[in-house]
Design a protein around this nucleic acid. Structure first.
Length: 443
RNA sequence: GUGAGCGUAGCUCAGCUGGUAGAGCAUCGGUCUGUGGCACCGAGGGUCGCGGGUUCAAACCCCGUCGCUCACCCCA
């Protein structure tokens, strides 16, 4: 009598179950291989940090920091672990679950003096992030990202281009086709404030034609008006001044050279002057990748340059660029496209018949497992028909049949379930055969 | 934070103008004591999200509440 579940996953969190976990592991493993082929190395970071780290880097006025973080106080030293009692300390350190990974990476870079390393520092990080938003398709309160960052003294456009190349190569590798890469430059500390002010003035002239959200943004963040989805605002937005016409000489040249670099590398992109990003720290290059099959939340990757962020956090003058890929969304899009990889499952189901064969079955199962074969062996005797039926339902590639005949002749009968091809093999032949099969299919 | 839609078996869903619940798939068993996918037979599994109201009678109507989903905001 199953009872109603007493506990359920917290809103916005979810369980990822087999066989989906195989897809996730493959996705993340592919990322590691591609990123490391570009000489990125993994950094593992804490899942919570001082709240102020995020406030300063992401921007205390952003929605992420002002209303979407999971924030709590650590108990101070005078308290015991707070397993009981609601009286949480007001004096403890205020910390937050990370809403993104770049801030932590910068903190680690500064804390461990990574600027002392030779060349550019190239790091990637895989793990969960937390934002207290209302869940919807492709959006969770605990979600997963792949992050990559390049930090160093240089802001050469080739660095930006390499990051974008890696991104494109990765998406191609995981079968995430039908994506669009959007590219823009949003200027730097010199030219952007002037443009934002110009934009604000222009927006004020047409204020009464805008919706309430956009009217509010004129004061809070004029750039955000540019990516409004309201159809009645599109005509007005199209006439607004564009940042590409107001970049300073340095930013203009950087953007032009980046586009040359992308051409050299054969990267296809779409320039989008309305692409603005939500985090305060971005400068110059910004980009975003959108994918199909995702509903309204269709951005699978966002990133850009953030020169000056390390300094803002108390580190040495440093240039930086990076991106975040939303794994939940990327994997959802791959699933919706049906373009799924064939992932290894159960290789062999051992169908043994009668107690006298059990010892032989156990012995060969162990040997097969030692050679990397996935084996299922029922611990209780069952009818032979039922064994094969179960082997089939479990999706086994082979049934290994062991009865009194096989034990008497020291052989095994291997049956391929897909086409019922069946052969008698010695132990040596069996191991050889399955190992070569495994190599051939390249799991 | 705002708005809309939906909550009936493990899953997908029926259930007419109110008369105290069904199907398919899945699971388990049998037909079937060394050859699976098929077929047939059978079994288990639901206080119809929860609480209240109307009624002789509520899965169905009304109110509330919780949950899920999608969208807005914002973002990966």
């Amino acid at each position: 009598m199953p009872e109603k579940p007493q506990f359920r996953a917290i809103k916005g969190t979810r369980d990822i179950l087999p066989p989906d976990t195989a897809l996730w592991n493959w996705f993340e493993h592919t990322a590691r291989e591609i990123f490391e082929s570009y000489n990125f190395r993994e950094i593992r970071l804490p899942i919570f940090e001082q709240t102020d780290l995020f406030a300063r880097s992401v921007g205390s006025d952003t929605d992420i920091v002002s209303k979407e973080m999971f924030t709590f106080r650590l108990p101070d030293g005078s308290e015991r672990l707070a397993t009981e009692g609601a009286s949480s300390s007001q004096t403890g350190e205020q910390v937050s679950l990370r809403p993104e990974a770049t801030a932590s990476t910068m903190r680690a870079y500064i804390e461990h003096n990574l600027q002392a390393l030779p060349g550019n520092v190239k790091l990637y990080c895989i793990g969960p992030m937390f934002r207290r938003e209302r869940p919807q398709k492709g959006r969770y309160r605990q979600f997963y990202q792949l992050n990559a960052e390049i930090l160093g003294q240089s802001d050469a456009p080739a660095i930006d281009a390499e990051v974008l190349e890696m991104l494109v190569v990765f998406f191609k590798h995981v079968g995430l086709t039908r994506t669009t890469l959007y590219l823009n430059s949003i200027g730097d500390k010199n030219c952007r404030p002037q443009y934002v002010e110009l934009l604000r003035q222009e927006l004020l002239k047409v204020k009464d034609q805008l919706g309430p959200d956009s009217q509010r943004r004129i004061e809070t963040n004029p750039l955000r008006v540019l990516d409004s989805k309201l159809s009645q605002e599109q005509e007005i937005i199209a006439k607004l001044p564009r940042i590409s016409d107001h970049l300073c000489a340095g930013c203009r040249e950087h953007f032009a050279r980046l586009k040359d670099e992308l051409k050299l590398r054969g990267i296809v992109y779409e320039e989008n002057w309305r692409l603005v990003r939500g985090l305060d720290y971005y400068t110059r290059t910004t980009f975003e990748v959108i994918a199909e099959g995702l509903g309204s939340q269709n951005a699978v990757c966002g990133g850009g340059r953030y020169d000056g962020l390390v300094e803002l956090l108390g580190g040495p003058p440093t240039k930086g660029i990076g991106f975040a890929i939303g794994s939940d969304r990327a994997i959802l899009s791959i699933q919706e496209s049906g373009n799924l990889p064939v992932l290894p499952g159960l290789d062999v189901f051992v169908a043994w018949m009668g107690e006298p064969t059990y010892a032989a079955a156990l012995a060969i199962a162990r040997k097969l497992r030692e050679s990397g074969v996935s084996v299922e062996l029922p611990g209780e005797e069952m009818k032979f028909k039922k064994s094969l039926n179960l082997a089939d339902k479990l999706g086994a590639r082979y049934a290994l049949i062991i009865g009194s005949d096989e034990v008497a002749s020291c052989t095994f009968t291997l049956k391929r379930l897909a086409d019922a091809d069946q052969r008698k093999l010695s132990e040596y032949e069996l191991l050889e055969y399955l190992e070569s099969e495994k190599r051939g299919t390249r799991g």
